[in-house]
Amino acid sequence: MNLALPRLLQLASPALPVGAYTYSQGLEWAVEAGLVHDQATGEQWIAGLLEHAVGRFEAPLAACLQRAWAAGQTAEVERLNADFLASRESSELRAETVQMGYSLRRLLHDLEDFPVPPTLDAMPEVAFPTAWALASAVWEIPTVDSLTAYLWSWCENQVMAALKSVPLGQAAGQRLLLALGGRIPVLAEQAIELPEAAWSNFAPGLALASSSHETQYSRLFRS
């Protein structure tokens, strides 16, 4: 019985209890500043981050993490986890990945028959991609499918944040997901092959938005 697809759908589900819905990753401030105010500007903001930051840093890093978990390369897992934590450019972004990583680690402990390796518990702080990659490796999900779902989940959360904060209608949200989803397969394939020297999370707009969100007066989201 091939359970890779059902397990992947479970991992990518909005029902996964990691608190992703509480974060906007600076999008809420972009709305407050007037940078995002409709479907077109929402797509521009989200697609820019997807292609130039998440797709070129988080996705290839998650691919390497999945391979390292599968091969039992403890030191490599710890190195990549530390690199991701160090890459978060604001206290909110760092707190987000640590909280989501902690929640996913706790969930994996609660699942029946999931073999949690000692390495996961030995790390004081677990980034979300690290825990996600472990689940993908244990459940033998093909890397390209894992990355596709990871990127989709990120896009879906961003669109949901836009629906609440712009606000946008449900039809606009589905048009956004249709447009963003069309970009994901190529990004997932590229991420698998992208050498580490070419990884980049250079997104000054995100850093500024996230930092500004920390002192934003009225907020719906935690980042």
Results as ranks from 00 to 15, higher is better:
residue 195 P to W: 06
residue 162 A to N: 04
residue 75 A to Y: 08
residue 89 E to N: 13
residue 61 L to G: 08
residue 177 L to Q: 03
residue 26 G to N: 05
residue 1 M to W: 11
residue 210 S to D: 08
residue 141 I to C: 07
residue 185 P to T: 03
residue 187 L to E: 15
residue 200 S to G: 03
residue 144 V to H: 03
residue 2 N to V: 06
residue 217 Y to P: 10
residue 167 P to R: 00
residue 12 A to Q: 06
residue 30 A to T: 10
residue 38 D to I: 09
residue 39 Q to P: 09
residue 199 W to P: 05
residue 161 A to W: 15
residue 109 H to V: 06
residue 81 N to P: 02
residue 2 N to K: 12
residue 9 L to Q: 12
residue 26 G to A: 01
residue 190 Q to L: 12
residue 84 F to G: 02
residue 146 S to E: 02
residue 36 V to I: 08
residue 67 R to A: 06
residue 199 W to T: 06
residue 190 Q to T: 06
residue 144 V to C: 07
residue 80 L to P: 02
residue 138 V to T: 02
residue 217 Y to I: 13
residue 43 E to K: 10
residue 213 H to V: 10
residue 117 P to W: 04
residue 92 E to A: 15
residue 50 L to S: 08
residue 37 H to V: 10
residue 121 D to T: 10
residue 89 E to M: 11
residue 20 A to R: 13
residue 11 L to F: 01
residue 83 D to M: 13
residue 201 N to Y: 08
residue 174 Q to W: 14
residue 163 L to W: 05
residue 97 T to M: 10
residue 95 A to V: 08
residue 24 S to W: 12
residue 129 P to G: 02
residue 211 S to I: 13
residue 126 V to F: 01
residue 208 L to N: 09
residue 63 A to H: 00
residue 218 S to P: 08
residue 109 H to C: 05
residue 98 V to D: 13
residue 173 G to Q: 07
residue 99 Q to Y: 06
residue 150 Y to H: 12
residue 88 R to G: 02
residue 81 N to R: 05
residue 157 N to Y: 03
residue 214 E to N: 04
residue 28 E to C: 10
residue 222 R to Y: 11
residue 188 A to R: 00
residue 120 L to T: 01
residue 21 Y to F: 12
residue 149 A to Y: 13
residue 67 R to S: 06
residue 115 P to L: 04
residue 129 P to R: 05
residue 183 R to L: 14
residue 21 Y to E: 15
residue 122 A to K: 10
residue 102 Y to T: 14
residue 71 A to C: 01
residue 147 L to W: 04
residue 13 S to H: 08
residue 94 R to V: 05
residue 120 L to K: 00
residue 48 G to S: 06
residue 18 V to Q: 09
residue 77 V to Y: 14
residue 185 P to L: 02
residue 222 R to T: 14
residue 145 D to G: 04
residue 2 N to L: 10
residue 212 S to P: 07
residue 196 E to P: 00
residue 76 E to Q: 08
residue 82 A to G: 07
residue 134 L to N: 00
residue 117 P to Q: 01
residue 135 A to S: 08
residue 39 Q to T: 14
residue 198 A to K: 14
residue 199 W to E: 03
residue 85 L to A: 01
residue 168 L to M: 04
residue 112 E to F: 06
residue 60 P to F: 03
residue 47 A to C: 06
residue 22 T to P: 04
residue 191 A to P: 05
residue 181 G to D: 01
residue 57 F to A: 03
residue 31 V to G: 02
residue 52 H to Q: 15
residue 34 G to I: 07
residue 89 E to A: 15
residue 44 Q to P: 07
residue 40 A to V: 12
residue 113 D to S: 07
residue 53 A to D: 11
residue 100 M to Q: 15
residue 38 D to P: 11
residue 159 V to D: 00
residue 50 L to E: 03
residue 156 E to S: 14
residue 6 P to E: 02
residue 218 S to G: 11
residue 98 V to W: 04
residue 10 Q to R: 13
residue 161 A to C: 08
residue 60 P to Y: 04
residue 213 H to G: 09
residue 179 A to E: 06
residue 33 A to D: 12
residue 75 A to R: 03
residue 155 C to H: 09
residue 12 A to K: 09
residue 120 L to H: 00
residue 64 C to T: 10
residue 57 F to W: 08
residue 22 T to A: 14
residue 171 A to K: 11
residue 14 P to L: 09
residue 191 A to H: 02
